[in-house]
Simulated assay, not measured.
Amino acid sequence: MNRSVAADDQTRIQRTLARLRDATDLPLTFGGAVNSGMQLQLTQFVGAIAGALRGAVLDPGRGLGGKVVTLRRPQLVNDYVGSQGISHHYDHIIQAECLRALVAVPLVVRGRVRGVLYGAVRSATPLGDRIVHSVMEMARELEQDLAVDDELARRLRWLDERVPEPRATGAPEPAGTHREQLREAYAELRVLAHNTDDPTLRERIEAVCHKLSTAGGDTRPADGAAVRREEAPLSARELDVLACVALGWTNPQVAADLGITVETVKSYLRSATRKLQARSRLEAVVAARRRGLLP
């Protein structure tokens, strides 16, 4: 699948356009994704439109959007039809929508243009610096979100290919180096998960984290009796903290990566230790691994 036109991108663009319209009071914000042929398709709109823009495909270098895709930098026109700085292949669409001033900003992720955001007005009033800055600022935020989504998806694909199915009781534990790699991947995924608000991606992360927690840990306590995960439930945040602690991170390091205070880290750690009936952070990690809560 071409990642640039994935549904995830369209959803992200739509949310950003809604935020942009609320922040600027622009009558219309719109945009879309760029395909592998460098064509921009306008699919996302916030505000009233006549319909001429919907689904329009802009070729590289043509019109305002095509120019933005080619140059990979923002462009502003305060009178679209009268502008000498763009081609006029799409004047009929702009005139049908009665648009005058437009700003367009590319979404560039890892050196590739993934989409374009627009802000537009139907009056002869020029777009001010505040509006142009707002469009650019939100475009930068969206670029970061898309980059995080890409990294999470990449890690999930890698883990899907390499993480073994849960071990049967009594099966040998993975070799030391492989085991540590699984534990590091688990902790990193839990940290990265907090940088995405995509529920579908988060569900995939949780599923892979579950595979990781049961792939490398000893799910039996010292007396050999089976222990169910439900007997020592930890909250998502408690697991986040414990997964980082298991790698030898200090409380300040855990706090910095999870975006919480050191005191909050201590609180989650105390709670997890109590639930696991442990006396120290090390015992808590060992107990969580025995219960299949951590890899």
Rank of each mutant, 00 (worst) to 15 (best):
H88Q: 08
P74H: 07
H92W: 12
G82K: 15
G66A: 07
G63E: 07
Y80I: 01
P74R: 08
T70G: 11
I93F: 03
T70N: 12
R72Q: 14
I86M: 02
I86V: 10
L71I: 11
T70Y: 11
K67L: 15
P74I: 08
Y80R: 12
G65N: 12
Q75H: 10
P74K: 09
G65K: 15
D91K: 06
V81M: 02
Y80T: 09
R62T: 04
G65I: 06
V77R: 00
G65R: 14
V81Y: 01
P74S: 05
R73H: 11
N78C: 00
G65A: 13
I93H: 12
Y80A: 01
H88G: 06
V77E: 12
N78H: 12
L64Q: 05
G63I: 04
G82R: 13
Q84R: 13
G85M: 00
P60W: 08
R72M: 06
L71Q: 13
I93Y: 06
Y80S: 04
Q84I: 13
V68H: 03
R62V: 08
S87L: 14
H92L: 00
R73S: 11
P60R: 04
H89Y: 15
L71W: 15
H88C: 10
D79V: 03
D91N: 11
T70Q: 13
K67M: 14
I86N: 03
D79N: 08
G65F: 04
I93Q: 12
H92A: 13
H92Y: 12
R62A: 08
H89A: 11
G65V: 00
Q75C: 09
L71H: 11
P74C: 04
V68R: 02
D91C: 05
Y90E: 06
G85D: 05
N78I: 08
G66K: 01
H89I: 13
N78A: 04
G61V: 07
R62G: 02
Q75W: 14
Y80N: 08
D79I: 04
N78R: 09
Y80H: 14
Q75D: 10
G63Q: 00
L76F: 03
H89C: 09
H88K: 09
T70W: 13
V69Q: 01
V81P: 03
L71P: 00
H88E: 09
R73L: 11
G65M: 12
I86S: 07
P74D: 00
L71V: 11
